[in-house]
Amino acid sequence: MRIYALAVYVFLYLPIGIIALFSFSAGRSASQMQGFSTQWYAKALSNPFVIDALKTSATVALISAILASVFGTMAALALSGMKGRVRVLFDALIYIAVMIPGIVIGIATLIALVTVFDAVNPWLEAATGWRLSMGHGSLIAAHVLFTMSLVIIIVRARIEGMDRALIEASSDLGAGPLATFWQVTLPMLAPAIMAGFLLSFTFSFDDFIIAFFVAGSETTLPIYIFSSIRRGVTPEINAIGTMVMGASLMLLVIAQLTLRRGKAPGH
């Protein structure tokens, strides 16, 4: 049983480990380990295409994670303890947003936005000289749809597990609803919101399939990696891949720690 478990862990981590190992190769070949060097990291980080893609991905992930956390938390607060048709409607929407394949979301967003833009642009251009097009905005909008739903689910679970007595105590002690919210409710929800934020950031940063459809002429890091892989496997991709994995791992560790701290008794 133990040996089996060990074998599965090897299966899970060996491929990632090999990529990380080969990214330190000094040779030009991606599939042979020759010596040790960090030259491919230097090369990747001085490649303007990589830096541009990284900037796009980081900007989009940051903005969409912020919007998702704020809107998601707001919705979770409103939906907690709510009954009736609105609640049922939102539950259904959240469920659909999480369950529909990313590829369908990507396609649907692409054709809907292109249609709307085509209809609005002539009028808008005449009035302001501006045109709407696919890019940062559509990427953020599409990512927020999924990540906001994720935040609602996480924060709502936290609200349901929350000790209501504290809120009652706060209002018994004469605090107004806003003071209670800032001083009691929000601090208690903070770990869940933070975890939701970090998961949203990770999702947006790693997403390929939705971005593939709605990024327009922008290139995110996953899109850059995907198109480089098509041109062949190189040690530079190994280095970029290792960095991306490292960044996700770091965010996950932080997310886990914040959630854990939030669950500790007496906190």
Binding site: M74, A75, F90, L93, I105, I111, A112, A141
Partner: peptide
Amino acid sequence: LLLGPAGLWYAALLVLPLAVV
């Protein structure tokens, strides 16, 4: 007010696109 942004998002980026498809 709290549900506003989420509702807007679901209407414009989930219901509308799926209807268009």
